[in-house]
Design a protein around this nucleic acid. Sequence first.
DNA 1: TCTGAACGTGCACGACGTGCATGGATGCAC
DNA 2: GTGCATCCATGCACGTCGTGCACGTTCAGA
Lengths: 211, 211
Amino acid sequence: MSEAGPPAGTGRRERKKLATRAALREAALRLAARHGVERVTVEQLAAEADIAVRTFFNYFSSREEALVATLAAGAEALIAEFRARPPAESVLTALREAALRVLRAGDLAGEEQVQALRLIVRAPSLEPQRLAVFAAQERALAAAIAERVPAAAGTLYPALCAATALTAMRLVLDEWLDDAAASRASLRKSLDEVMAELAAGLDRPGGPVDP
Amino acid sequence: MSEAGPPAGTGRRERKKLATRAALREAALRLAARHGVERVTVEQLAAEADIAVRTFFNYFSSREEALVATLAAGAEALIAEFRARPPAESVLTALREAALRVLRAGDLAGEEQVQALRLIVRAPSLEPQRLAVFAAQERALAAAIAERVPAAAGTLYPALCAATALTAMRLVLDEWLDDAAASRASLRKSLDEVMAELAAGLDRPGGPVDP
DNA sequence: TCTGAACGTGCACGACGTGCATGGATGCAC
DNA sequence: GTGCATCCATGCACGTCGTGCACGTTCAGA
């Protein structure tokens, strides 16, 4: 974790590995768009990235992991942006701003990318791996929250907030992608709403006693 | 969904299917405890339940699904208990009470069961399927919440509350299972705490500006 | 008792994921 | 630039997974 030694990303080896990984990520989206998520095989992925099938498994432990790799990259970027927010911001505000930055600057650049993500998110066979992506970032986010709110370190709050906030953001993204004609503005609106609800408290009284 | 026709659960066929399914659920836990989660094969599962390998796939679509089937049953029971709570109870209160009932009356009966669940929850290779179990119940819970709080129907609230509350409960269960010596009382305490935090709002101001 | 549908099963096959051995590319110290 | 230690890509073999298909059996209802 320390920054000792030669800076990461230098060296031919590291660069080649990063490039191969990125090529596989993009190949996965391309092939999913072309043939459908279910019909993408490891053989095709390897061929598209021009590596051996055996080598594919040096980069991803399963076909599904490659298909959700772009989501994983986005989730990691979210945590990084969150850590970069001014420490005075409240937790949920920082998360909201971080999400907006990732969406603006990030992988959701073109309509083409959005379309590809739609495929990934809607594929039922990918749901387990897709959820695992967010769960993996829960731990990292919980650690970051514990740093931001020192008073809460050691309590359940960091883990709880990380898990629920990520879940809420997943929900917003899912619903937004479900709506073919949804605008960028509507995404921001939903995000604001959801974060406000989390901040204000989720409980609600029941309905009429005799419905 | 309607109750027309012969009542479900009657008939030799239905009973046999239910029994086979239950046998597979239990076989999965037994074999996981005996050989470790990773080493349980479909062949073993089928043999233990005395059915053909091919037939196994008529009941579960994957080896992993069988291993988390007990969790799935618990989650379904939770939704059913939630629906049975008095309508005047607030959403989070009803969820908390429902969870306590499931834990009391349900599959967490013996220490043996708890030990088996620990194995399932801790197995990294099962995490995607495990998360999918809860996600599958999110939709059902969201529908139930929309019924309980008619005013919120049509808004994001039902889905948001269902997703975050289930996530929070998953978190509590995970942490409780992680602690070998945790008591039933401590589980209840954590559950109360978490629900209270969700009710009160999750936001927190940041720490000192210059940490 | 008869009949259609649902179910269990065996078989074949493509795809997945891993351990192992090997050769080549890379980084590093001298 | 030379030699060495290491990492990495690759091919191969193998066990496991999951599915389509065809066939025989069992069950529910008339």
